[in-house]
Simulated scan of single mutants.
Amino acid sequence: MTETETETESRARRYPLLAAPHVRLAGTIDHDMYASFRDQIAKAPAEGTIVVSLSTLGGDPEVARLMGDEVRLLRDYTARELLFLGKVAVYSAGATFMAHFPADKRFLTRETRIMIHERQMTKTVELSGPLRACVASLKATLHEIEQSIDIEEEGFRDIIAGTKVAFDEVRERAPTNWYIGAEEARDLGLVLDVI
């Protein structure tokens, strides 16, 4: 059952800080977004809560992890509260970034969707030369895949920490692109509330 517009507006009034995010990110998660993120964080007020909003169809998961680590360090070293506000689409690397905020510090606007999926790789391995060199090339690719799976599973654990979602469920649903609407995300505890 979806809420009426009045119920959502009433809920939004409980969180006045979310009306004017200090950091507004939209588009592909890449090094340009990281630079904008750093610039906006530097211009945020020196004290008090910082609100970070994001709308993205995805991008580079390692840049998302880098921005997330910046959030963690800021929280750990300054003890400041940082809130996440997902708008419209929080897909792929966006969910990776969102995972760096505790579940009770995450919010979505109504009609927003989160999309969680497995990391993907497109790679051609060309074998040429001495056999030992071929073995080394294959092992290097295998190690890259294994490390990517480890990083992916760390991210899955981060996004579900403190929620009603079991690790096995997210791992089972991720291969087919798991889309989660705002209200379902709230009901699962993936976000604190929907505004």
Rank of each mutant, 00 (worst) to 15 (best):
F101T: 00
K87T: 12
G58V: 11
L83I: 03
E81W: 00
L85T: 10
M121G: 02
L73F: 06
I114F: 00
V135Q: 14
E144V: 01
V90E: 05
I116T: 01
A140S: 15
D104C: 11
M67I: 10
R75N: 05
L66W: 13
S55D: 13
I116C: 03
K105F: 00
Q120G: 14
Y91F: 15
R110S: 07
D69R: 11
G94A: 07
L142C: 09
A133Q: 13
G86K: 06
L138I: 15
M115Y: 10
K123N: 05
G86P: 02
L85K: 03
T124H: 08
E126H: 04
D60E: 12
E146W: 01
D76S: 15
P61G: 04
R75A: 13
H143Q: 09
H117V: 00
M67G: 15
E118V: 12
A99T: 07
L54T: 07
D60W: 15
I145S: 12
L82Y: 00
A136I: 01
L57T: 12
L127H: 06
Q147A: 15
E62D: 13
Q120L: 12
E62Y: 15
S148L: 11
A140L: 08
E146N: 11
S92D: 10
E70T: 08
L66M: 03
P102T: 14
K123A: 14
R132G: 04
H117A: 05
I149D: 14
Y77G: 00
G94I: 01
K87W: 00
G68R: 15
F101C: 10
M121I: 13
V135E: 14
P102A: 10
E62T: 07
A136C: 04
T124Y: 03
I116W: 05
V63C: 08
Q120S: 11
A95M: 14
D150Q: 14
Y77H: 06
I151K: 10
H143P: 01
H100R: 07
S137I: 13
Y91N: 06
S148E: 09
E111Y: 04
L131A: 08
H117N: 06
P102S: 10
A79C: 04
